[in-house]
């Protein structure tokens, strides 16, 4: 799966990748998508199996993993950031306004 990379982008449409080992802030990591590998600077420390943003994501825009929406960001996120419950929320099962 990793093929030597530090993170995996499951689909070319994805704007996040999953890190396959703990990543330190400021580290350059290799992100694999199929056979293609790119380099990304991690802006945050990211625990193993957590998500890192690959692109800038605007407030209210969807986070894409598996080529599908997994929710929306609550505030703008730059590349290389840890994407998790502090800045991402489900777009489903919300109480009626």
């Amino acid at each position: 799966m990793s093929g030597g990379a530090d993170a995996i982008r499951l689909s070319p449409e994805d704007n996040v990748a999953t890190v396959l080992r703990p990543v330190s802030a400021g580290e350059d990591i290799q992100v694999r998508c199929g056979v293609e590998v790119t380099t990304l600077a991690a802006a945050d420390a990211i625990p193993m199996c957590h998500k890192i943003s690959l692109l800038p994501i605007k407030e209210g825009h969807m986070v894409i993993k598996y080529g599908q929406s997994i929710g929306e960001v609550r505030a703008a996120v730059g590349p290389g950031r840890h994407v998790h419950v502090h800045n991402l929320r489900s777009a489903r099962a919300r109480a009626a306004p």
């Binding site: 193993m48 489900s90 489903r92």
Partner: peptide
């Protein structure tokens, strides 16, 4: 709020953020 029940605390600590991500 599904966050905290599904995904549950164990899922969240492990890196799953939303029910959509868990479901996919």
């Amino acid at each position: 709020d599904l966050l905290g029940s599904n995904p549950g605390p164990t899922n969240i600590a492990a890196g799953l953020s939303t029910i959509e991500e868990k479901s996919l």
